[in-house]
Design a binder for these strands. Structure first.
Length: 599
RNA sequence: CGGGAUGUAGCGCAGCUUGGUAGCGCGCCUGCUUUGGGAGCAGGAUGCCGUCAGUUCGAAUCUGGCCAUCCCGACCA
């Protein structure tokens, strides 16, 4: 590419619309332009980067025997109705762009493709002899994100690699899942990224085991908890750990005490001069299921701990059948307005006990019984402090069973930095920020059962296909690479995904010798398969150097002063190290550098 | 959706308090000089001041509605 003939525009000032370094740099360096909220044009340089990433993803997927295909982005509602996800994906918090066509058919733009691929499998897979299968595609996905953010990090249209595997049994699924975990590690390593694979919540997609691949960067949207020995890493929303030991209660007998203006743990510990870990905190939630049923949930947890709402949602999801529902669609701490719809009389917020009566709920508005859950941290307390169910009063020295029935025990606590690890209590939990670029799931039979995708076993019986699914955010990955690798002058692309490997800067285009040398190298390098840009613009040298640094091409050749001794200057972007190399040797040297950095 | 902010030239911003012919820097165009880290001088072009309504003799400026974008929360590759 000759820059003099390219649509190449860099910005000297930081665009106001961008917040994080990678977003600013991609805009400034002319890689992307915003078209609408969460919608970006991938300009020629960006498209080359994306294709580099795609190639690596394809190679690693193909190496596992997965087969590339391409599924429609426009999807009929029918399929989503069969899987039971139409309503949850289109209503209220729904993330799917859905509309009606001119024949009054309901259709949607694919946010993901479980339904489509399962329909294909239902049609095509008949026998265990055809299993396992793993199909993947790389295409744009559409998601009506509530808040698009940070450029390509969270777009409403973005490029994703999604793969779906089909198996006769769980063992086969686990095998492919492990292969995918290896393939994902290979992809990210080859893209030159520092990353960590972490245990994850499987969320709305459903299923059992799941791991996320996190690119480590401060601008990440996720918290990763891990131990220094490398034995444990998990998304904070999934993480488990040993809580700090509770301080022994200073109370010995059950008493109701006046605790004016003590509606928070902090105030209460000050008034009672006790430890937060001696308190049973009771948090009220309002859960909504897909059939419209609203359930009031009272979670009791130790005072120094926090409820993890993801874990809580999963617990409530397991109980959906108790309410004749399939899934939970909402979980909130009700505000006074939400609460006014179902309370019989004002609740003593901040002073609730685990035993508050079901009669505080107005009959007929929500389910009559409050669902009571207790976190393990609170269940093991004795002589604890808790609310007295009337404002300004708490109970001290309370005990489960004698004072309150012990509710169902669950793990809904948030793991914290500094907690001890479960696998080895001598290890403490540390934290880092991560950008989720990949996620692999063991789905099981959720979709195949719902959609009737079955196969015939060796024994001649019919069974639902066992499925896995595996995603990579290709466009997010590309931006994550920038977030992880830049300096004050601009982007520093890992060599493997740089749009070009070499840029030749001609300091003075009116100097015939400089131009001739540059032309010669440009032709030679490209002919040798080294992707090279020629900056032959009629600009001053300083402008060219600044732009070369900004767009982050790994190696820069300058056909300047040193030409007099038959040499050109070669500068490595990442280190800024410069050396003069005789023209005939340039190709060999750069080739070896590229080989060394791509590995 | 709740909370916060912003919309003025391609980009970054001032002007608005106190209404009176729309400005600065960068970029862009022309010419001359310059030519190794975002050049200098001279000349030039570019605006429905987000949008609709209201107040007023007069609105970028005051008032109200709407729209869009960004940031903080719930969602996710």
């Amino acid at each position: 590419m000759r820059l003099s003939q390219s649509l190449f525009v860099t910005l000297r000032e930081e665009p106001a619309e961008a917040e994080i370094p990678s977003h600013k740099l991609l805009l400034r360096a002319g890689y992307i332009r915003r078209i609408g909220s969460g919608l970006y044009a991938y300009l020629p340089l960006m498209w080359r980067v994306l294709n580099k990433v795609r190639r690596i993803v394809q190679e690693e997927m193909d190496a596992t025997g997965a087969q590339e295909c391409l599924l429609p982005q426009l999807q009929p509602a029918e399929l989503w109705q069969q899987s039971g996800r139409w309503d949850t994906y289109t209503k209220s918090e729904g993330i799917m762009f859905a509309f009606t066509d001119r024949q009054q058919r309901e259709v949607a733009l694919g946010p993901t493709h479980e339904e489509v691929i399962t329909a294909v499998a239902r049609d095509m897979i008949r026998s265990y002899r055809q299993l396992p299968q793993n199909l993947y595609q790389i295409q744009s996905k559409f998601r009506d994100e509530i808040r698009p953010r940070f450029g390509l990090m969270r777009g409403r249209e973005f490029i994703m690699k999604d793969a779906y595997s089909f198996h006769a049994n769980e063992e086969s699924l686990k095998e492919t899942y492990q292969e995918m975990a290896v393939a994902y590690s290979n992809m990210l390593r080859r893209c030159g990224l520092k990353f960590r694979a972490v245990d994850a919540d499987s969320g709305a997609i459903g299923g059992s085991g799941s791991q996320e691949f996190m690119v480590l960067a401060d601008a990440g949207e996720d918290d990763v908890l891990y131990t220094a020995d490398g034995q444990y890493a998990a998304n904070a929303e999934k993480a488990v750990s040993l809580p700090a030991d509770a301080v022994a209660s200073i109370f010995t007998s059950r008493e109701e005490v006046a605790t004016p203006a003590s509606d928070t743990i902090e105030k209460l510990t000050a008034v009672l001069k006790c430890a937060a870990s001696s308190i049973v905190k009771n948090v009220l939630y309002q859960a909504t299921y897909d059939n419209g049923t609203t359930v009031i949930v009272l979670v009791s947890i130790r005072g120094d701990q926090k409820v993890n709402e993801v874990k809580l949602t999963n617990e409530l999801s397991k109980r959906a059948a108790d309410y004749q529902a399939k899934t939970i669609i909402g979980l909130v701490v009700p505000d006074s307005e939400a609460m006014s719809k179902w309370v019989a009389q004002p609740l003593p917020l901040g002073y609730i006990s685990p035993g508050i009566g079901d009669d505080c709920v107005k009959p007929g508005t929500v389910t009559a019984k409050i669902l009571r859950l207790v976190d393990h941290t609170a269940a093991s307390l004795t002589n604890f402090v808790t609310g007295a169910d009337r404002p300004g009063h708490h109970i001290t020295g309370a005990n489960w069973n004698t004072d309150y029935p012990l509710p169902v025990q669950v793990d809904v606590r948030t793991a914290l930095v500094g907690d001890r690890a479960i696998h080895d209590p001598s290890q403490t939990i540390e934290t880092a920020r991560g950008i989720e670029v990949g996620h692999i799931f063991q789905l099981g039979t959720k979709y195949s059962e719902a959609m009737g995708a079955t196969f015939t076993t060796e024994q001649g019986t019919e069974q639902p296909l066992v499925m896995g699914c595996y995603g990579v955010g290709v466009s997010r990955l590309a931006q994550a690479a920038v977030e992880q690798s830049y300096d004050k002058d601009g982007i520093i692309w890992p060599v493997a995904i740089a749009p070009y490997q070499v840029i030749i800067c001609v300091p003075n285009v009116t100097d015939a010798a400089q131009m001739a040398a540059a032309e010669q190298l440009y032709q030679e390098l490209n002919a040798a398969g080294i992707e090279t840009i020629l900056d032959d613009r009629d600009e001053r040298a300083g402008v060219k150097f600044k732009d070369a640094d900004l767009i982050g091409i790994p190696y820069r050749i300058v056909t300047g002063r040193s030409l007099q001794s038959g040499q050109v200057e070669v500068v490595t972007r990442s280190t800024k190290q410069s050396q003069e190399i005789p023209v005939p040797e340039v190709q060999g040297v750069i080739r070896s550098w590229i080989a060394a950095s791509i590995g």
